[in-house]
Design a protein around this nucleic acid. Structure first.
Lengths: 185, 185
DNA sequence: CTCTTATCTTTCCATTGGATAGTTAAGGCA
DNA sequence: TGCCTTAACTATCCAATGGAAAGATAAGAG
């Protein structure tokens, strides 16, 4: 039974990529990764919902790919920010604000396949980039404090808990805040 | 058609309370509020899934109640902690670690009915308690920094990003970290 | 003792994620 | 060129979900 109403090709060509962006769009519109529907993503990509099984295995697999991409983007952003701790922190916040869907998924390990090899690799790359900037820290508490303040600001920003002027730049808003941790003590 | 296999009474007596605790249990076991199933909660409470309509309206309504209870608990914990900023911060983290399900829901406004009156009231009570402790702050950035570092630590702890010794006390782990913000500058 | 109303159940529905089996195309190899 | 293996995708079925509607039961007011 060959239906094929539309004249699009049988093979998408770059379904994986299309699915990822469609998923991120859907998460943004839905407001939460929880509301994500596989079938909705499939419709956006113009594909049967079962097509994802081959590429991602299932819904958790799709979200695993989103998280993986997120960690990769974060690692890139951190490396690009250089050695300055403040700038790295600003980059962290900026990443979260620019990719809220990725950020949301990343820190909800219950949603995806947390022991996926690719995911782990990207995760460790981001972790290494973070540790590299913080290597000047005196002790472990110093590192934890830096990570906490930056992650906290990012989380609050993304969740909408900070009622800021619309269109405000998250990075610039964060700079004076996270700088408080860096003053000479 | 009166089936009623079990001999439990037709009226539960305290369904609202039972539903809340069942929902929290289910979220903890499921790992994420996203995985929460209304019908599962109903089974735990020994009730038809349609019974919730009257009490909560629907799934978002149930999660709204969870978030409301969370904000109330947080407000209580903060007020009980007294005037000390460090102790308030420790209490914040301790709350998150003790009630991870509530905490998870609270900061995902997309999951619930964010403009519910009761929710707003509890939210504002917690906000007031937080602001009260931070009132000694020099400026707004100081307040934001304090909130960020505490919320960041709590988020990372709850999401499992901090690989700590099992059974470790979150509050005590947080104390030296958040104290770094309080050193004389 | 009846009426009213809050609480709960049954039943039905569209939608979801997943499983299975079949269809199409693309690339290696004769 | 023609075959054949395999990647990529569709069609279809299924159990489970959240919600809606309508009815059953109980509790309390008068």
């Amino acid at each position: 039974m060959a239906a094929m109403t539309a004249d699009r090709p049988y093979h998408h060509g770059d379904l994986r990529r299309a699915a990822l962006t469609a998923a991120v769009d859907a998460i943004k519109e839905g407001g939460s990764p929880a509301a994500l529907s596989l079938r909705d993503v499939a419709r956006r990509a113009g594909v049967s919902h079962a097509a994802f099984k081959h590429h991602f295995g299932g819904k958790p697999g799709l979200l695993t790919a989103v998280a993986t991409e997120g960690y990769a983007l974060l690692a890139d952003a951190l490396t690009a920010a250089g050695d300055d701790r403040i700038e790295a922190g600003v980059a962290y916040v900026r990443f979260a604000a620019a990719h809220p869907a990725h950020f949301d998924v990343m820190f909800q390990p219950g949603l995806y396949n947390a022991d996926d090899p690719d995911l782990r690799a990207a995760e460790q790359r981001a972790g290494a980039a973070l540790t590299a900037v913080l290597s000047s820290s005196a002790d472990e508490n110093d590192e934890l404090a830096a990570w906490s303040i930056v992650h906290g600001f990012a989380s609050l920003w993304v969740s909408g808990a900070l009622r800021t002027a619309p269109g405000a730049d998250a990075g610039e808003a964060a700079r004076p805040v996270i700088s408080l941790l860096e003053l000479p003590r």
